[in-house]
């Protein structure tokens, strides 16, 4: 179960001399859900692109497992309306088997939209279609870039629940990106706070039983917490007791 899917060792990346990622070392495991959180500009997307193999790091190593098979759910997708393409055809781009496409659409609960043009799907439906395409090739590692973007609160709840279920049934590792500190699902095994360097990482705590949240999210939903030895500013930066940003190892931003 606990085999590493991909290992990053002291990865650095800069764009036009501006460091975006510094000294990132991490390991993502089979069967574990890892959530990547951090403020805008923290380098989340760049880190994801490095893990996907779309961007080469400047230094450091990225070692994927031999049997690594990635399913990727991009943050957003805009297909020109001039391209006539149905949802099932969109899925077939990843896997030609018609049967597998229908199975995937059924798993995410939008099989009734198979014939609809992909451009006509609502925000939540489109996220489900993207999720269906990500799981189509039977991956052992799912990379979900802000999977609930543009989805209302109830829909977010449903999507997170679905992702948790999928990870169990596929027994795959999941890397999920969120910029929301407060709304990360309870099923997360590991949380990584990124702000160019890894500020902190760890296991989230027990389900919060705040009645106000249970009101909104129901029983399946919980709010993520983990113990901080520090405070975050409203931008998510790590602050010390005096409210100053505390620099991690090898970190030299302001």
């Amino acid at each position: 179960m606990n085999n590493p899917l991909i290992t990053l060792d002291r990865v650095n990346k800069a764009f036009a001399d501006r460091p975006v990622l510094q000294n990132i070392s991490l390991q993502l495991m089979q069967g574990e859900i890892t959530t990547l959180i951090g403020p805008n500009g923290a380098g989340k997307s760049t880190l994801v692109r490095i893990i996907l193999g779309l961007v080469e790091p400047d230094s450091g190593s990225v070692s994927p497992a031999d049997r690594l098979k990635i399913g990727y759910m991009p943050q957003k997708i805009s297909i020109d309306p001039s391209l006539p393409i149905s949802t099932s055809r969109f899925l077939q781009l990843a896997n030609t088997s018609n049967h597998a496409c229908h199975e995937a659409l059924e798993m995410v609960g939008i099989s009734h939209l198979a014939k609809s043009p992909i451009q006509s799907l609502s925000g939540g439906e489109l996220q489900r279609a993207l999720l269906a395409r990500a799981i189509l090739r039977k991956p052992n590692f799912l990379v979900l870039d802000e999977p609930v973007q543009g989805v209302d609160v109830m829909g977010q709840n449903a999507l997170y629940t679905m992702i948790a279920k999928l990870s169990k049934s596929l027994n795959c590792g999941i890397l999920m990106v969120s910029h929301d500190l407060h709304l990360v699902m309870s099923a997360t095994d590991q949380v990584i706070c990124l702000n160019q360097h890894i500020c902190c990482q760890g296991h989230p705590e027990q389900v919060t039983k705040d009645p106000a949240y249970l009101d909104i999210f129901g029983q399946t939903k919980a709010i993520y917490t983990h113990k901080h030895d520090h405070q975050h500013s409203i931008h998510g930066e790590v602050l010390d007791g005096q409210g100053n940003h505390q620099h991690g190892e090898g970190c030299n931003h302001d």
Binding site: L54, I77, L93
Partner: peptide
Amino acid sequence: INITVHADLAEVE
């Protein structure tokens, strides 16, 4: 068709 729909997705696949 695949890169027209989404280049990154196509590359990962």
